[in-house]
Each structure stands twice: as C-alpha cells, then as structure tokens.
Design a protein around this nucleic acid. Sequence first.
DNA 1: TTTATTTAGTTAAGCGCTTAATATAAATTT
DNA 2: AAATTTATATTAAGCGCTTAACTAAATAAA
Lengths: 350, 350
Amino acid sequence: MQKVPKATLKKATLKDVAQLAEVSTVTVSNVLNQRQNVSNETRQRVFDAVRQTNYRANLAARSLARGRSNTLGVLVPDFTTQYVGEIVRGLSGEIRQAGMEVILSTAADDLKELTQLDLLQEICEGIILILPHDANEKVKNINYSVPVVMIDHRGSTVNLPAIDVDNYRGARLATEHLIALGHQSIGFITGKFEASLSRLRGYQEALLNANLVFDEALIQTGDFTQPSGFKAANKLLALGKPPTAIFAANDLSAFGVMEAIKEKGLKIPHDISVIGFDDIPMASQVYPALTTIRQPLLEMGVAAARMILAKLKGVEPPSKRITLSTELIRRASTGPWPKNVPDQREVRIS
Amino acid sequence: MQKVPKATLKKATLKDVAQLAEVSTVTVSNVLNQRQNVSNETRQRVFDAVRQTNYRANLAARSLARGRSNTLGVLVPDFTTQYVGEIVRGLSGEIRQAGMEVILSTAADDLKELTQLDLLQEICEGIILILPHDANEKVKNINYSVPVVMIDHRGSTVNLPAIDVDNYRGARLATEHLIALGHQSIGFITGKFEASLSRLRGYQEALLNANLVFDEALIQTGDFTQPSGFKAANKLLALGKPPTAIFAANDLSAFGVMEAIKEKGLKIPHDISVIGFDDIPMASQVYPALTTIRQPLLEMGVAAARMILAKLKGVEPPSKRITLSTELIRRASTGPWPKNVPDQREVRIS
DNA sequence: TTTATTTAGTTAAGCGCTTAATATAAATTT
DNA sequence: AAATTTATATTAAGCGCTTAACTAAATAAA
C-alpha cells in the first residue's frame, strides 16, 4: 500500500515528473516512449516518479506534438440492431491490440449528419464507416482527408475500400440446405438492398442446379423488418400450394415468418422449414432456434480494422474490396421433407 | 462555384488564414470564436480566407491551449441490446445541441476493461456511464477525475449521480392493467437485478391493493433472456391452474413467453395475455405487438446529458439520483378476461 | 595513444491554438 | 482642448508534449 501524495488539484505534467526524478523532461518522454537511450537506473527513477505523481500523458499535447492522434474513428449509422454491436466488438478488439484507440460516433440513420464525419476526421487518423442502408450517393461524395474503410454489410457499390460478404454464396448455401432436406417448393423473401439481389441470384442458381423450377409466385419483397417478414409469409401461406420451406433474406424478417407460421397453427420445422440470413445473436434465442446463414460480423470488424491499420503503415491492400465468406448455421428451424422421413434431429447435412 | 485552391497537402493553420486575410492569428482566432472585438470588414476578410483555405481548427491544439476538450464521453458496456441505442440517441442529441461533442467507447460487458475509462477521462470533460448488469463494486471504486453520471437502467445502488427509472410504479401499472382487464391469476417472471425486486414489489402491491391473493407458484425467476422467458412460461403453463396472464419483467423474456404460449397452441391475447417491461423497439414489431411498460430510454439519455452539462457549469443537481417515470404502452398482447367479454379492441383502460 | 563510435543524457525549438497584456486610433466626455 | 473611454487590432507568452540537434563521458577500434 503505497501512499498517494496529497490530492493534487492540477494534474501532474512531464515537468513535474522530471523534477521529481531529477532528469530533463525529454528523458521522461524517452522512458515513457520506450526509447533505448536511458540507463536502467534512470529509467527506474522516472518510473517511480511517474507512480508517485500519478502522471498520465495529456493526449491533446501529445497529439499536437506528434501531429497524430493514435486514434481510429468508427462511424455507426444505427445503433439499434444487434448487427452493429458485433462488428464493433470485432474492430475495437483488433485496433486496441494494435495499440491504437477507438472512438465511436453515431450519425443519423441516413448519414445526413456529415458534421460528425468531419469531427471524426479531425480527431482520427483513419475512419471505419459502417454503412447504413441507403447512403451510397452521400457517402461517395465525401471528401475524405484520412484513410477510410467501409463495412458494407448491405452490399452497396461504393468505390471505396470496403469489407463485404459473399451474399450470393450464402443464399446458395441456404437454398441447397433446404433442397438437401427434400424441399422442392421454397419461398423466398427478399428486400431492397443491393445484397438482396445477390441473395436472390444465389437462391435461383441453387434451384437451377437442382433442376427445380423457379416460381415467381414464391418470391415476396419485404423491407428486412420483422413485420414485413410476417406479411410476406402470410402471402406465401395463402397460396394455393404454399411452399414447404421459406428462406428469408435476413434474420429479422425470418422471425416475422416464424410468427406467421405459428399463427396459422403450423409447427416449425415439422410443417414448414424456415431459414434466415445474418445470424444475429437473437437467432439462437428464438424458438425454435433459427437455422441461418452466418455473416461473420465480428470478422468483418477485424478485417476492416486490419485494412485501415495496414493503410496507416502505408501498405495498400491487394484489393479494394475484401469479401468474407458466409456459413450455414444449422439449428432447429429447418427439417426434412416430406414429413414422413425421420425426425430432423437425425438428419445430417452429410 | 468558387475555385478550390490546389490540393494542399498540409492542412491550413491559423497562420495560413491570417496571412491570407492580412491580419494576425489572434484576430482570426477572435473571429472564429465569435468575440466582438473585430470590425465587420475584417471579419469578412477572415471568413473569406477561411473558406479559401478550407481551414478547420486543429482540435488537439485547441484542447491543449484551452485546457479543455469540449467533449463528453459515453462508456457503453454492451452494444447488442436495442436498449443502449435509444439511450445513446437521447444523450448525443442533447450534448451536441449544447455545442459539445460526444464520443463513445465500448467496454467488456462487465466493465473489467477500466483502461477504457481512463482513456475517456483523459479526453473528456465528463463521462456518462451506461451501467452493465453487474458492475456495482467495480464501478464504485473507480477514481473519477471528471464529473460522472450513470444511467442505471438496471436499478443498481451506486452512490454516484445517476438516472434511473421508477421500476416499482411500472410494475404496478402493468399489473393493474391486467387486473383491470379482469385477470385474477397473473404469472410473474422476474430476474436477478436489483430492478427485479422493485418490479416484484410493484406486482405484489397491485395484487394486494385489488384484494387478490399472492401465489408464490406464479413467480418464476429467469435471467432476462428470451430462452429464460420461454422456459419460465412453460413452467407456468404446466401448472394445474395456469395463470390467465403473464407479466414478464423485461421485453426480451416476454418474447420467450409469447413463443411458449404459441407453442402450446394458445392464442395471445385470447387465451392468455402477455405484458413486458422496457419497450425496446422490437416490442412493436413482434406479433401480436407487445403491451409493455415503457422505460423512457431516450429521455434517460437526455436527462443524463443535462445533468452532466449542468455539472460542468458548476451547477450541482438538486438530487444525486433522478428517477424518471414509466408508462403503460397498450398494444395487442393483452386482452380481457374472462374470454366471453367483448373483443379486446373495444376495451379501454378507462 | 589517438581517433572513431556508442551510450546517456541535455538544450532548443516548435506543434497550432488561446489568453493576457498591450498598443493605437477614433469617439466620447468633461 | 485635454482627459477618458471605446473599438480594433497587435505582440508576447505558454498549454504539455515531441523531435532534432547537440554534448559529454565511456568504450571500442585503429
């Protein structure tokens, strides 16, 4: 238990530490920045003085002197999806590991508030932008004064460095999973983002590849919300010959689909299978747990962080756009068809 | 369309602006900080120069010179609940309106990573802490060097300035709502936070007040997650005489409750009513839309912001703890009992 | 031994801004 | 007309840190 000196009103500065340790401020700075031109004995004296004065570097002064802030900024368009949380976890871990700091900033959903971006650029050496649903044009026209990487989980087409995800392959995996279970009539609920198109294509090509017919009537367009999934599923269920499985192009609308099915008194997956896309944390929390396509949200954060970290070191990435792969997460909401084959628990993807 | 000067590699500084406007740097500073000792003519010249040079103040330099950063920090423990998003929206709006900047920082769920807090204190003039589930002890022992306000939506008992919510009254409102609908046997699913106790008390006293018996068997303890609500509801439904309504002490577990009820083939609210607590955005998105007790998340953010803003001006708040009131949000998941009375749409709280 | 090199520190200068102290001319008061 | 106030600037100093340039002593190479 060492004694803390009297409550110092003013924070200790380098000068205070230097005086206590009886060295110059530069030597203190050298010690603190791990430069090798200090003897062990002096180094120890400085460390002691730092401890005694409870010294912490003033970041503003340091940034000013260095001409750089050691901080990366993340602009988050929308806080209320579980989506963003995962991404942020990934990138902040990676950035801190690299010895830099992360600060987040929120903006209106549509990135109208570009003032925030200005501020971030003022403080940060680089920016990671988690793209909102529909900000292509605005985002494209920003004049970036620091390196930028976008996390483009919505599949936009901005010509700036970006991390995205293989939507086509994910949708294909999902559809092939259902086909492998025996389903031949598969409803598809899509949205309006660019990603939806790739996902639709994945769905179509999986059908094609399995020699199944593509039926326009089985396609419903929603807006990626839970109620829109609910409505779309109701339409599908009202068809003369409803599908035996529904592929919702995101988890949230898959939840809506599940509600609609239960509402009709049908059982999932016994009567109808449901598969989602995203694997947000809640996907494993609903009943029955949702089979879905995992977007590697955390990894997207990590990749974005690495990309921008590399840029700061002057290393240009091999490609402007890094596409991460998706993965089938098999849970309880999908089962075999026709019903009379063994219980879904015994089914394996093979 | 005025011409932008050649791509300046270096950012313009006060000096550059001053030279262009043919004044001293101090005058530029005065203009920029809206001090009144500058003639209109000079002011105009300065503004023009600022525009031409595309000047933006260097925040590090400004902070250093002023000795303050004009920034407030928010420490967010957990990003994946919709909760936090609302709170952050509220406080950042308020803070920006006051002309200050907001930066967010994440920490591990349990606030173990207090290094983040250190950093924030370095940069910010004040800190708003959104409390995690279980960090009382740790949080209490932090040595805060700047003003702090906690957002205590979990009902902890930290002896630091905090914003919280009237959990007791909310629970009472919820229970009274069900009682008014005719329910006499009301299940209650609680959790383990301090807030759960107040909510339980609200539930009990509402029963007492209506001369209803309090039945231990109708109380289930969960952990505020969706699956825990599911399990708890299953237990309640398995009782010899199951309740006709279930009050889940948070929305997430209410979702689980709804799933369990549907799973049994029962209809909400026809066969059984469900009410939640929180009013997270998704509460209105599920089917049927969840009746719940609204925690004024946005307002909590605003209140926290105002509190800390006041502190920075040297105004101590009248009370250390500000408790905001809760409100019943009537949606579709609660209905009258017994079943044979008119359809729920015609029922009003009176 | 003389010279070159390394080690361990120092002093000087400046990052870009603000604030305090001062100067000058013009406007007002006495 | 002299003294005072006001409006509009300027110069000087410093916020707390880093970096570059330099120095003195200790060590190694010639």
